[in-house]
């Protein structure tokens, strides 16, 4: 059969969702942000909640998220996305409100807002993109940089004796009583993207239950900040990041899941 005969509207199985704008993404080639943007928009399209969803854009590489997500968005100050989301959700309890934050935003300057929003059990969804460095400003060490990881401010690798230990925000919020669903996923292979999409879908559906906060961490890459090609970065992520940040659900339906 000729290829041109297959390319017909009737045979279409996958297409970029229209909720992602036509504007080219400002991210570097191979960056996980693009995949996460797309799967969030696909989930919103599948749940048919585009007109009822309000997203909160952070500060960081994804500061322009509102340019690419064709839904209502609000820009928050650095780290304050959970506080902004709290205000919006309390004004419109029936809207779906989510924040999209990087590790510098959520785990460094916004630690207080994140922990208190999770502890209060605000009925929102937090999507946390963890690439282990401050990508936008040039790849400096972040609170989530794993031990031994090279960044522009730790050229010999992170020494925990000198620079302290990395923080596992997802493990912390899973132990707070206000969270309903906590999961850690990645987007470096097709299988992981499918699992991450399922977790994000659960996190959005949970807002209907009004029983607490849903938190999804995505372990992602940063080819430019890590000074690698996208393929090398994904391989490095699998070999180094995932053993330190094990994937899977940490809390389901308000109950902690014991590690396998």
């Amino acid at each position: 059969m000729d290829i041109n005969e297959i390319i017909r509207e009737a045979n279409l199985v996958y297409k970029k969702t229209s909720l992602l704008t036509e504007k080219p993404l400002s991210y570097c080639p191979g960056c996980g942000h693009g995949v996460v943007h797309r799967i969030i928009m696909e989930v919103i399209e599948e749940l048919d909640i585009a007109t009822e969803t309000i997203g909160i854009a952070p500060v960081g590489c994804s500061v322009l998220a509102y340019e690419f997500m064709d839904i209502d968005m609000q820009q928050a100050s650095h780290g304050r996305a959970p506080a902004t989301a709290t205000g919006i959700k309390r004004c419109w309890p029936d809207k779906y409100v989510f924040t999209y934050q990087g590790d510098g935003d959520l785990a460094a300057i916004g630690t207080s807002e994140t922990i208190h929003a999770c502890n209060r059990g605000e009925n929102i969804t937090i999507i946390f993109i963890n690439n282990g460095i401050y990508g936008m400003t040039g790849g400096q060490m972040a609170p989530t940089t794993i031990p031994g990881m090279v960044s522009s401010t730790t050229p010999y690798g992170r020494d925990v004796q000198l620079m302290g230990n990395p923080i596992k925000m997802t493990d912390i919020v899973a132990r707070l009583p206000g969270t309903l669903f906590v999961s850690r996923q990645s987007v470096h292979t097709a299988v992981n993207v499918r699992k991450a999409k399922k977790a994000i879908k659960t996190a959005f559906e949970n807002q209907k239950l009004k029983r607490g906060l849903s938190f999804v961490e995505i372990v992602s890459n940063c080819p430019s900040g890590w000074r690698m090609t996208p393929i090398q970065a994904n391989k490095w992520l699998e070999e180094n990041m995932i053993p330190f940040y094990p994937l899977g659900d940490l809390k389901v339906d308000g109950n902690l899941v014991s590690p396998k």
Binding site: N11, K16, R38, T189
Partner: peptide
């Protein structure tokens, strides 16, 4: 659809 699912820029449309 694996290629379309991992594409960070959503460039790929798949027919089957």
């Amino acid at each position: 659809m694996n290629c379309a699912i991992v594409c960070p820029d959503g460039c790929i449309t798949v027919y089957r």
